[in-house]
Design a protein around this nucleic acid. Sequence first.
DNA 1: AGTTATGTATACCGATCTGTGTTCTTAACG
DNA 2: CGTTAAGAACACAGATCGGTATACATAACT
Lengths: 199, 199
Amino acid sequence: MTELEKGPQGRRRGRGARERILGASQKLFRDQGINQTGMDQLCAVAQVSKRTAYQHFAGKDELVAEYLRRFDPDVMSAVFDRTDLTPRERLLAAFDLPRTATQDDITPLCPFIAASVEIPDPQHPARQRAHDYKKAVAARLAETAREAGATNPEELGEQLALLLDGASARNRALNTETFPTAAAIAAVLIDNAIPAPAQ
Amino acid sequence: MTELEKGPQGRRRGRGARERILGASQKLFRDQGINQTGMDQLCAVAQVSKRTAYQHFAGKDELVAEYLRRFDPDVMSAVFDRTDLTPRERLLAAFDLPRTATQDDITPLCPFIAASVEIPDPQHPARQRAHDYKKAVAARLAETAREAGATNPEELGEQLALLLDGASARNRALNTETFPTAAAIAAVLIDNAIPAPAQ
DNA sequence: AGTTATGTATACCGATCTGTGTTCTTAACG
DNA sequence: CGTTAAGAACACAGATCGGTATACATAACT
C-alpha cells in the first residue's frame, strides 16, 4: 500500500513527503491512536521534516481528516463488488473482510469508530467523514440486501451495520475475535429477512 | 447520584473531596472524554485543591480506574434484578435501560468502550476493568437467557452483549438513537434461541 | 482546648504538545 | 547551466500536560 524508497534511480527519500506522511499516519494512528501520536513522532516515522508536514497540511486536524478520507474510499468494494458471490453471500462476506484485510491475529478497531471516540467535537471534519462512511456502509449493505430479496432492505442494512460496529468495539474491549459471533447473528437476520429462499 | 453541598449544617465544601472528585470525573469524562479532561479543570469543577486530589489518588490513571470501578458496580441490576418481568422481558429491557437511565436525548457512549478506545495500553487498570465489566454483562445476559430457556444461553448472551456495544458505538458515530434497532435484533435472536415458547 | 486529619491556595517543575521561523540543500525542468 | 520548488535540519515559541512543594486554614475527635 505504501510505495516508498524506490523510484527510477533510487531517490533517497525526498519528493514523496505527502504520501509518506499519510502512510505513517495510517500506521501510527492505528497502533497508538490519534491523540497519543504526536506530530514529532509522526514526522520521524515518515522521514519528513516537520516544516514540510505543515506545508502539506494546515494542521493536525486536517491531517487526521485526510487520513480518514483516504481510508477505504470506495466503501468495502473488495466485498461488495465481487461478482462471484450471490448477494446473500456478499452480505456474509462483509463479516470476513475485516479478518482477511489485516494480517493481525485480531481485528483492529475500526478507525472511524476510533476517531469518533477520540475526537470530542462532532463538527470536526474527521467526525463528519466517520459519519458519512458509516452511512455509506449501511447503504451498500441495504443495496445488497435489496438484491438478495429482503423485504425491508434498509432495515436489514442498518442491522448488519450495527453488527459490524459491535464486533469492532467488542474486539477492542475484550481483546477477542468477535466477528464470528456477528456473522452468526447476520446469518439469522438474513434468513429471517428474505421471504422465500430460492430452492 | 451525587450528594454534594448539603450535610447537617451546610458545610461549605470541605470534607467530601474524594466524592466530589469522582463526581466531577463522571461528568467530565463523559462529556469531554478522558484524555481531553485535564486535572486542573477536573479539580476546578470538583472544587477541590489539586494537592488534595493527589492525596486521594496516586495519579490520573488510578483516578480513571476508580471512576470506572464506581460506574455501575452491580452490573445493570436495575434490569436484571427486576422480579416483575419474565426472563425474556428482562433480556429485552436491557435495551431500554440505556435510554431511561440518562436524561439525554441521545444515549451517551458506554464509558467502558470509551476508556478502551482512549487508553492504548491493554494492561491499564481501566482497560482491565472494562474487560471485566463487559464479561460480566455477557454473563448476566447468559444467565437470564438460561432462565428464559434458551438452548445455548452463553451464545445468546454473547450475541446480545454485542448488540448493546454495537448500538453504543453506532450512537456515537452517527449521533442517532440506535438502541431500538438493537432491540429489534434482540427480539429475533431471543425467539430463535428459545425452542418452545410457553403457550 | 489542643491535636490531628483534611483541605486550600498558589507557585512551580519538567515534559510534551501543536505549530513557526530560518537557513541550507538538492532534485527537477527549462 | 541556471532557476525554482520541494524538502531537510533545527531551534524555538506558547500552551498545556501530569504532578509536586510550601505554607496556611479549618473541621473533627479526644
